[in-house]
Design a protein around this nucleic acid. Structure first.
Ligand code: SF4
Ligand code: SF4
Lengths: 140, 140
DNA sequence: TACAATGAGACTAGAATAGTATCATTTGGA
DNA sequence: TCCAAATGATACTATTCTAGTCTCATTGTA
């Protein structure tokens, strides 16, 4: 089954949670873990990666926590997936064409490239302002 | 990196090879392995799965080999991927919504569903008659 | 200083991946 | 009839990935 990892899904929950808060408000990772049913010990890795990808800013110490590093409208599902999984490739040759000796005469390579473009486009347009707004509706 | 497995790629090579042959002509798995640079021992598993998915027909014994089970125009990249990987899910909740307790109020779930539709559409339209024709061009 | 929070990373168990190797079965032809 | 050619079905290994737990260091606030 071709799918993202569990951690990536957790990362989406974190960003969504932050996106649904009033702008600039901080919340601790533990609080998100509790509300979004993420294993407590796992959320640390997720937050670290999201921080490294500059999607969230973190503050240590008491009263610290996380917040989005930029407006939710400028963070898409694509950004989160790429931060967690690395590139969205579909097939390795899309990212590393050198590694396949058949690539020059391979029509399938082109098909994967096209599919990747379609997928990335779709994920790029799923920005977290839209998702958060939709989440408010569903939650109410 | 979100990607198909190596075996799935090999499966595409097999189907493409068969699609580029004159209709009905049989060829042995070993011959495909040699021409398309697939490990000899691995191609057996690939062919078995493609046979189980009714994408190819096989004949044992000397003079045997493989051929497409239906016209190349009726086999798409989607069929091959699903035969090898199982469902194209992108996220488990797209296939097994019951397993996530958040699914009812989750806007991200809808986004994954939309992305899946776009990806499957793209892969479905990549039929192997088109790919084979393009392959003839590239190879010439 | 005490405490609350993140940062970094070691560790485990289990599953998936990629590839190799055997042996059985079927079939056509010498 | 018997051999060789071909697929069918597994078993096996080594490696990497996944999901999750745990511990300790670092930072910042009160
Ligand atoms: S055979 Fe074609 S699709 Fe497969 S890895 Fe090579 S270039 Fe890509
Ligand atoms: S949190 Fe949403 S996207 Fe993630 S698995 Fe649950 S329903 Fe799917």
């Amino acid at each position: 089954m071709i799918s993202i990892s569990r951690e990536t899904d957790y990362a989406c929950r974190v960003i969504l949670h932050l996106g649904m808060l009033p702008v600039g408000q901080r919340v601790t990772a533990q609080e998100i873990a509790r509300q979004r049913i993420v294993p407590r010990a796992l959320i640390r890795r997720v937050v670290t990666r999201l921080g490294a990808a500059k999607l969230v800013t973190t503050t240590r110490g008491s009263g610290g926590g996380l917040a989005l590093a930029r407006p939710a409208s400028e963070i898409s599902l694509r950004d989160v997936v790429e931060a967690m999984e690395g590139a969205i490739a579909l097939n390795t040759c899309v990212i590393y064409p050198r590694e396949c000796p058949l690539v020059k005469a391979c029509p399938v390579h082109e098909a994967w490239t096209n599919a990747r473009v379609a997928l990335v486009r779709e994920l790029s347009q799923a920005t977290f302002d839209k998702l958060a707004a939709r989440g408010q509706m569903l939650g109410a």
